[in-house]
Amino acid sequence: MKIDKTKLSRRDFFKAGTIIVGGIAVSSTFIPFDGLLFAIERPKGKGKWYGIGIDINKCIGCGKCAKACKIENNVLDEPFYFRSWVEQYTIKMDGSILVESPNGGIDGFKQSVPDEEIFKSFFVPKMCNHCAKSPCVQVCPVGATFETPEGIVLVDETYCIGCRYCVQACPYGCRYIDPGKGTVDKCTLCIHRLDKGMQPACFEICPTEARIFGDLNDPKSKVNEFLKNHTCMVIKPHLNTDSKLFYNALSSEVR
């Protein structure tokens, strides 16, 4: 539609004005409902879109990843703060399940159950799942935690108010409050290393190459190869967080 400026009467002006202002007013009442739609659609980055693969069969529970993570990211030493840790699952013959993670596995593991009582046992390295529909990002009231265009969930520690809502929302226990800073802290997938073309510290240090990461949008990437050649599963799939941390040989006991 072409508007003839010379003929624009006052009435038309008000009419157009009312429509525009009214339209904005009406549409703005719908904006809050945008918030409802957070976990409905599966977002996917256009460029790089990082995913992680962990092969439980290869993990020997040395805990080097947990230690490297603490050192690389200056995480507090106390055994209550982990961006990355390892759990040892032992399923006994009687069906009971024993899970241990002393100091996140940093000091190594001991098998406390005698061999003849063990049905099976394995290690599960844990870290942030960098979910595409992160419950933690969804609940952050101020936008201090977010997904980068590459799909990494980061924290803006200069903006975090320390309300701890995200800690409650994370189903995987991957967040903690740094008592010194008063803000939340979590795995950054070592974005400072990725930026320099290096691997994240826990990947770099893994002696058995049990950890793999790569671009999910690139069909030839290591992570896509891993997904193709293994039967992979995420933890707590029923929560539909669209986790991007895929485990090979994940047992149903793992939560």
Partner: peptide
């Protein structure tokens, strides 16, 4: 830089990237 890339401070990405390296590879 709030809102440049999404509902967050876009500068925060660079601030995260500026962390110190410890493992050399």
């Amino acid at each position: 830089s709030f809102g440049d890339l999404g509902h967050y401070r876009a500068d925060a990405i660079q601030e995260n990237i500026d962390s110190e390296l410890h493992y050399a590879g």
